[in-house]
Computed example of a mutant assay.
Amino acid sequence: MSESCDLNGVYQFHGDTFEVTPTVKADFDKYGYIIIRNLLDVEEVDKVIKEFEDPSTAELLNNNKVKVSDCQGREAKMTIWGHPGNDVSGMISRSEKVAGTCEQLLGDEVYHYHGKLVTKEPFTGGAHLWHQDYGYWYINEILEPNMMTVFIALDKCEKRNGCLQIIESSHKCGRLDHKLEGQLTVTDPTRLDKIMDRFSMKYCLLNPGDALFFHCNLLHCSGQNSSAYRRWALLTVYNTVSNQSCKPHHHPQYIRLEKVPNTAIKSCDKFTDFTDKRILVPKTFDSKQVIPKTPA
């Protein structure tokens, strides 16, 4: 397996829109991801950080955090919500440059499956093992892997603070079996070794505002945060309308996503209104559904 930071499918956000050209779509289909640099500009990043650092919001998030141990004395933390809401982070998840881009990449109308703030704090942030997101969502009886995640860096993501690692084109291998190792879920190691022999592993080095759009079957992991710098990221998961779960579970069924223009992010002044987001309380999770999710 080769290791590199030389990513494919990297694009730059310019102006007010992002066009999913045939080349962009071909890169997503081939590699299982694209990266859009500066999807959020400095003002937009500052706004969402202001929201999550607001004392009242921070208290709410802290009271509902899922802590995931990596069995090496460290842990990653996340707060998960079911609906985008009308706050700043909700405007990002509902924006054309995020949700609209996902619709073009998946070729279908999408809805908000869930969102989360994932944090790796300095010196204590834990690792996540190699996995596919669809390894979890398959258990929720979602029949097709027509789903994707948008990972938006709120802090600089580097090797030393646990940036994402991906295996290019691994989404073409289909859904792999997963098993629990402590609180983490990891894919079948025998199959993983063979995949890593064939495909390239890449480090996703991101600056604040950069976004990774990736397919739900793309293998990914992340290391521990051994640095003095935190690693915060906003993640939004989308499912396609035709791919609803066959059973009710802790994530929402289809609710039409009311997309907003990209300008709605900067015009939004709601930093503490989580009323409509439906935060998932950890104690309500069903352990049979392999929860908590370990996204990155």
Rank of each mutant, 00 (worst) to 15 (best):
P55Q: 11
M147P: 00
L154T: 08
L219S: 14
G32L: 03
E109Y: 07
Y111R: 07
H14L: 15
T17K: 13
E158M: 11
C173A: 09
T275N: 03
K77L: 08
L219Y: 09
E75M: 13
C102W: 00
F52A: 06
V66T: 14
L235T: 11
M201I: 14
C102P: 04
F123T: 08
T79C: 14
S4D: 12
M1Q: 10
E3I: 11
D155P: 11
N86P: 01
V260E: 05
H112A: 01
Y203R: 15
E144L: 07
L60E: 14
R191V: 13
D193E: 08
E51N: 05
A296L: 03
C163R: 12
Y136Q: 02
E59T: 13
D41R: 13
F285C: 07
T275M: 02
K277C: 14
K283M: 12
C173V: 12
S170T: 10
G73E: 01
S287M: 10
F52N: 11
W81N: 05
L60A: 14
Y254F: 11
G135W: 01
E59W: 13
Y113V: 00
E43T: 09
E59K: 14
K259R: 15
C216M: 04
A99T: 01
D27E: 11
Y136F: 13
H131I: 10
N8C: 08
K179L: 04
K47Y: 03
F271G: 05
K259W: 04
V186N: 07
N63G: 14
K159D: 11
L164H: 03
P189Y: 00
S69R: 02
L205H: 07
V48E: 00
F274M: 13
V45H: 11
I80C: 04
Q253I: 11
V110N: 10
Y254N: 12
L39C: 15
V20E: 05
V241F: 06
C5D: 02
V290I: 10
R94V: 00
M1K: 12
C268Q: 07
Q12L: 08
Q289V: 09
D286Q: 14
Q224F: 10
H215S: 04
S69A: 03
C157E: 14
K247A: 11
V20A: 08
L212E: 00
M147W: 02
E3S: 13
S56C: 02
R230M: 08
L39Y: 06
D210G: 07
V98L: 09
D177W: 00
Q244V: 11
A76F: 07
V150D: 04
K194V: 04
C221Y: 03
L205P: 09
D27N: 10
D177P: 09
K259I: 03
P295N: 04
Q72D: 05
L60T: 15
I167G: 12
D27W: 03
Q253G: 12
Q104R: 13
N243T: 09
C268L: 05
V10F: 05
G135P: 06
V150W: 01
H14P: 05
P22G: 04
G15K: 03
E144N: 06
R198S: 14
R175Y: 01
N225C: 12
L257D: 05
F274G: 03
T272V: 14
T240I: 01
L192G: 01
C5H: 09
N38Q: 05
S69D: 06
W130A: 14
E19H: 15
S2M: 10
D188I: 00
D188V: 02
L176Q: 10
K179T: 04
S169E: 13
L60H: 08
E109A: 13
M201A: 04
K293H: 04
H83C: 09
F285L: 09
